[in-house]
C-alpha cells in the first residue's frame, strides 16, 4: 500500500474533545521533499492535527505513518528521534538559556552523552560536545544569527526568536518539519526571508508541513495545499486550483457572512 514517494501518511484520523469533533476522517499524504500548506479558518483543527502527528495526544482512530512505519505508539520524544520536528505557534524557546544552548538542546536526539558520561567526561564525550557545538554554530549561521549565540534567547526580538526555533528544530536532523504559523508576528521583509529559508530547508531534503494564515506566503511556497474546515478536509490540490475551489471559498466566505 505505502508508496515510496510519501513520507508521511495521515490515515483516517479522528479526534474528539468531549462532544466536540476536532478532527473527522482526515486523510492525506505528504510527498517527500515537498512543501504542503495546511490552511483553514480558525478552529478548523490545524493545530490539533499537528499535535496528533507529533504525538502530544493520541488520535481516537486512524494512523500516522512515517516512511511506511506506524508511529501511533510512539511518544513525542521518540517521534523526534524518528524524524518529526516542529515549531510552535507562539514560539516556545527555553528562555533562561542562551541562543546557542537552545540549539544544543535541539541536538539532544543526535547526541548520546548520559548522566554518568557527563560526570566522567570521557574523551568521546568531549568530542561529541565539540561536534555538537560546531553543528549548532552552523545552524545559527544558516539562520543568520551566529553573532547572537551567547545571548539569552528571550532578549532577542520576536522575529529572531522564530528563526532560533526553526534552527532548533533543524538541529534534530528531521525528515519532516512541521511549522505552526511561522510568519505570525513577522513584518513583510522578515516574512519574505522566512519564505526563502523554508525553500532552503526543503532543498536540504526535508519535507515540510506548514500551517500559515499569511495566504500570499502559503500560496507562493507550497507545492500542495490541504484545506480543513470544522475538522474535515474539504480540499487537497495545487495552490492555484485550491484558490478557485468552491468548497474552499464557501468555507472562508461563509465564515465572513456569519
Amino acid at each position: 500500500m505505502s508508496d515510496n514517494s510519501h513520507l508521511l501518511e495521515i490515515k483516517d484520523i479522528h479526534k474528539a474533545f468531549g462532544g466536540v469533533q476536532a478532527l473527522c476522517d482526515i486523510d492525506f499524504d505528504l510527498e517527500k521533499d515537498a512543501i504542503t500548506g495546511l490552511i483553514g479558518p480558525n478552529g478548523a483543527g490545524k493545530t490539533t492535527l499537528f499535535n496528533v502527528i507529533t504525538g502530544v495526544f493520541p488520535a481516537d482512530r486512524g494512523e500516522i505513518r512515517l516512511a511506511g512505519q506506524s508511529v501511533n505508539n510512539r511518544a513525542v520524544h521518540e517521534r523526534v528521534e524518528l524524524g518529526i520536528a516542529r515549531t510552535f505557534q507562539n514560539v516556545e524557546l527555553f528562555e533562561n538559556m542562551t541562543v546557542l544552548e537552545n540549539i544544543l538542546v535541539g541536538l539532544h536526539t543526535r547526541t548520546r552523552c548520559g548522566m554518568i558520561d557527563s560526570i566522567l567526561k570521557f574523551p568521546r564525550i568531549r568530542r561529541e560536545e565539540k561536534q555538537a557545538r560546531k553543528r549548532a554554530a552552523e545552524l545559527l549561521e544558516f539562520v543568520d544569527l551566529a553573532d547572537y549565540a551567547p545571548r539569552r534567547s528571550s532578549d532577542l526580538p520576536f522575529g529572531w526568536q522564530r528563526l532560533v526555533e526553526v534552527a532548533r528544530a533543524m538541529a534534530a536532523a528531521p525528515r519532516l518539519l512541521l511549522l505552526d504559523e511561522p510568519a505570525a508576528g513577522l513584518n513583510m521583509s522578515e516574512t519574505r526571508r522566512l519564505g526563502d529559508l523554508i525553500h532552503q530547508i526543503r532543498d536540504q531534503g526535508i519535507t515540510i508541513l506548514l500551517v500559515e494564515h499569511d495566504m500570499s506566503l502559503t500560496m507562493s511556497i507550497s507545492d500542495k495545499i490541504v484545506v480543513l474546515d470544522q475538522g474535515r478536509k474539504i480540499a487537497e490540490d495545487t495552490p492555484r486550483a485550491v484558490q478557485s475551489d468552491e468548497a474552499v471559498m464557501a468555507a472562508y466566505l461563509g465564515k465572513a457572512q456569519h
Binding site: V80, A85, F94, V105, A172
Partner: peptide, 8 residues
Amino acid sequence: KAAAAVGV
C-alpha cells in the same frame, strides 16, 4: 512541552 518536542 517544548523540551519533549525537541526530543528530550
